[in-house]
């Protein structure tokens, strides 16, 4: 398989890599670029643990080919905090104890951030449906929803 040469931007930094034509974006992020914050929970788009954004759109990176992101802007969990300053969602997840094992947490944070950028004042039901593609097996979602609602309120006030 001849490799493809891809130029893209990840978390605001230009990134260049070679990939097999059938490599997923997730595998390139994790195995080549050492961005292991996105997780492979299912490989079939059913769990959301690999969530990233491509050109501002929330996607499951296991269902995107690396070849497709030529010229695209990608953001991952590694780009969410700015230096020492956590994003309000990250802060609220800690304060509300919205994680137990934490393996779904990067995907949920990326997805929640995409929601609040689109809808700064979601209802609890809207949050629950937006995050339905992010499976969490530890928390029963309760504290996650609380954290997202609280972060949204803080961000609206800020």
């Amino acid at each position: 398989m001849k490799k493809l040469h891809i130029n893209t931007s990840i978390n605001g930094n230009s990134a260049e890599f070679l990939c097999d034509p059938d490599a997923t974006l997730l595998s390139v992020l994790r195995d080549q670029l050492n961005l292991t914050g996105a997780k492979e929970g299912c490989g079939s788009g059913d769990c959301g643990a690999c969530s990233v954004t491509v050109n501002g759109r929330l996607v499951a990176s296991c269902l995107v080919l690396a070849a497709e992101v030529e010229g695209a802007e990608i953001t991952t969990i590694e780009g969410m905090a700015e230096g020492e300053v956590l994003h309000p969602l990250q802060k609220k997840f800690l304060e509300h104890a919205a994680l137990q094992c934490g393996v779904c947490t990067p995907g949920i944070l990326v997805a929640a951030k995409a929601l609040l950028e689109k809808n700064p004042d979601p209802s609890e039901t809207e949050v629950r449906f937006w995050l339905a593609g992010n499976l969490c097996r530890c928390t029963g979602y309760d504290k996650i929803i609380n954290a997202v609602m609280d972060a949204a309120a803080e961000m609206r006030g800020a």
């Binding site: 997780k39 590694e78 934490g102």
Partner: peptide, 23 residues
């Protein structure tokens, strides 16, 4: 009381190393 967990920041920033994250 309800203090923050010590492994929390690693887990909200993607730094925490799970089984498949080591090479």
């Amino acid at each position: 009381t309800r203090p923050l967990r010590p492994d929390g920041i690693d887990k909200v920033t993607g730094r925490a190393q799970y089984g498949a994250d080591q090479s």
